[in-house]
Write a protein that binds this DNA or RNA. Structure first.
Length: 493
RNA sequence: GGCGCUAUGGUGCAACGGUUAGCACGCGGCCCUUUCAAGGCCGAAAUACGGGUUCGAUUCCCGUUAGCGCUACCA
């Protein structure tokens, strides 16, 4: 048995650092999940950091949605949320340090010069190669250029001219990049108004914060692999020890393109709304890009926690497969101990206004539990409990026209249902076998197949063509309701 | 265009030099059956291509191709 180390300041520290430019999407959720699993497994600390340094794109109101989604997934954190927009001084100080030690320089180039603009002009020092547009790697301001009046400079990192920068990735292994390929990236935006400098850029913010927050493992999307050498350079310039990097592959749409709105729901909160069980969603997400190394797939959170390791993380981008997610959901709906499922159903019925307090305790609870258990093999999403199962929780349900069409075709149906109502009303002890016998006896005397009567009855008492086995359904509904519904139905046909 | 990453059925993962290439989703069929699910059984379906290395490559190396990523005063 492994002993459980106490949570200490020098233990594992990870962070999830979303940017509030959109909702929490599947990829972000999985990154958060991996960080969380890793932290839990190592008895480490998880930090939530909001990377909102781009005032233009940032939408503060989206932060709550991200937090809601994480909470729904059961992902919690020990520190934060911290907001980068409130830590500006820290980044400026770091940029100044780089400036002072010659690791950075003031750049007076107009932003447009680089942003998809005139590469040839900006890239004076860059050797042309190939036929396409050359890329700016070395800014012409890097070795000092006279300041331009009325122009506020940005601060750029002075990337070494030669050599390589390498790092060890826990997932992708040893990586080495040529410094020649790394551009003199911006650390601090130029100032506006009174301010001499603006907000931090991504590279500076992450590194400064990861140092300040003593992050030991950076687990993030593989889209950051190319950013990592820049960050390694920054760690060195700031005199800090870099953390362990672990890049996880991206999640793609069914066409293997980057996931976007047109692939359907990518917002995690939409899955909550649709009625997926968070643990099923978590199980699905964990297995997209990670494997425990064996064939078992139904891994409850407890098992995920026991088995998660960075070694099991795949290096290939994965395609989001909604049918598989739905399969996981139905598996959880069926396999979860009933007492774990009940609260979810209770929540659903409260949302739809069908909930009755009498189901909270005692005999009511027992009935509720049995009924949910009866229903669950046929449920795909939580809202199904209040839609097609409505007749189990309310007398205010409607008869599905398609079911009527299919099972009430025979002209004898109304009369049969009326007779069945009488026969069932006469039962002294209401249970599965008694109602079964009564129905079959009637079918025999009436000269019809039991199936005809069974199908017609189902539609009459639950309004649907699909329901649990009829006599179990009858027991769940109770004698009085079954008799009444049969009489009502026979009168309306 | 440059640089980087990746490559097992349609999809997600196994096989980490020697297997009839395994499991799961999805798909088709059968069984069960009062409906629909669930469940059980069976089936179709893969090592991107080309070179090496090796007695032997899904596995190691190189190239090609394809997909993705980075190449912003976005993150």
């Amino acid at each position: 048995m492994t002993e459980t180390p106490k949570k200490t300041a020098d233990g594992v520290r990870v962070r999830f650092a979303p940017s509030p430019t959109g909702y929490l999407h599947l990829g972000g959720a999985r990154t958060a999940l991996f960080n969380w699993l890793f932290a839990q497994r190592q008895h480490g600390t998880m930090i939530l950091r909001i990377e909102d340094t781009d005032a233009e794109r940032n939408k503060p109101e989206l932060v709550q949605g991200i937090i809601d989604a994480l909470t729904w997934l059961g992902i919690d954190w020990d520190e934060g949320p911290f907001y980068q927009s409130q830590r500006t001084e820290l980044y400026r100080a770091a940029a100044m340090k780089c400036l002072a030690n010659g690791g950075a320089f003031l750049c007076y180039c107009p932003a447009e010069k680089y942003a998809g603009g005139d590469y040839a002009e900006a890239a004076q020092d860059d050797e042309p190669k190939g036929g396409g547009p050359r890329r700016v790697t070395r800014c012409s301001c890097r070795d000092g250029k006279p300041s331009i009046p009325d122009t506020k400079p940005a601060i750029r990192f002075k990337v070494p001219v030669g050599g390589t920068t390498k790092f060890l990735d826990a997932v992708f292994g040893e990586r080495e990049f040529s410094n020649h390929e790394i551009e003199d990236f911006v650390l601090l935006r130029s100032g506006r108004g009174e301010e001499e400098f603006g907000q931090s850029m991504y590279q500076l913010g992450v590194v400064v914060d990861d140092i300040d927050m003593r992050i030991t493992h950076v687990i993030r999307g593989a889209d950051h692999i190319s950013n990592t050498p820049k960050q390694m350079l920054l760690y060195r310039a700031l005199g800090a020890e870099p953390p362990v990097f672990a890049h996880v592959p991206l999640i793609l749409g069914s066409d293997k393109k980057r996931l976007s709105k047109r692939h359907g729901a990518t917002d995690v909160n939409m899955y909550r709304t649709e009625g997926f069980l968070p643990e099923a969603f978590r199980n699905f997400l964990a297995l997209l890009g990670w494997s425990a190394g064996h064939d078992e797939q139904f891994l409850r959170t407890k098992e995920l926690l026991e088995k998660f390791s960075l070694e099991g993380v795949s290096r290939t981008n994965g395609v989001f497969d909604r049918p598989k997610l739905e399969w996981f959901n139905t598996q959880y709906l069926q396999k979860l101990p009933i007492e774990e499922l009940l609260p979810h159903v209770e929540g659903e019925l409260k949302r739809s206004g069908l909930w009755k307090e009498e189901w909270a305790t005692g005999a009511g609870r027992e009935w509720f539990s049995k009924t949910v258990d009866l229903l669950r093999p046929r449920i795909r999403l939580l809202p199904d409990f209040s839609t097609w199962s409505k007749a189990f929780f309310s007398d205010d349900f409607t008869i599905d026209p398609a079911a009527k069409e299919k099972f009430w075709k025979d002209p004898k149906v109304p009369e049969l249902l009326a007779k069945l109502a009488d026969a069932l009303a006469a039962i002294a002890e209401w249970n599965h076998d008694a109602s079964d016998h009564a129905l079959r006896a009637l079918a025999e005397t009436a000269g019809v197949k039991a199936g005809l009567l069974i199908n017609a009855t189902r539609v009459a008492i639950v309004g649907q063509a699909v329901a649990p086995p009829l006599f179990d359904t009858m027991v769940a509904l109770g004698q009085a309701r079954v008799v009444k519904r049969l009489r009502d139905a026979s009168g309306t046909i």
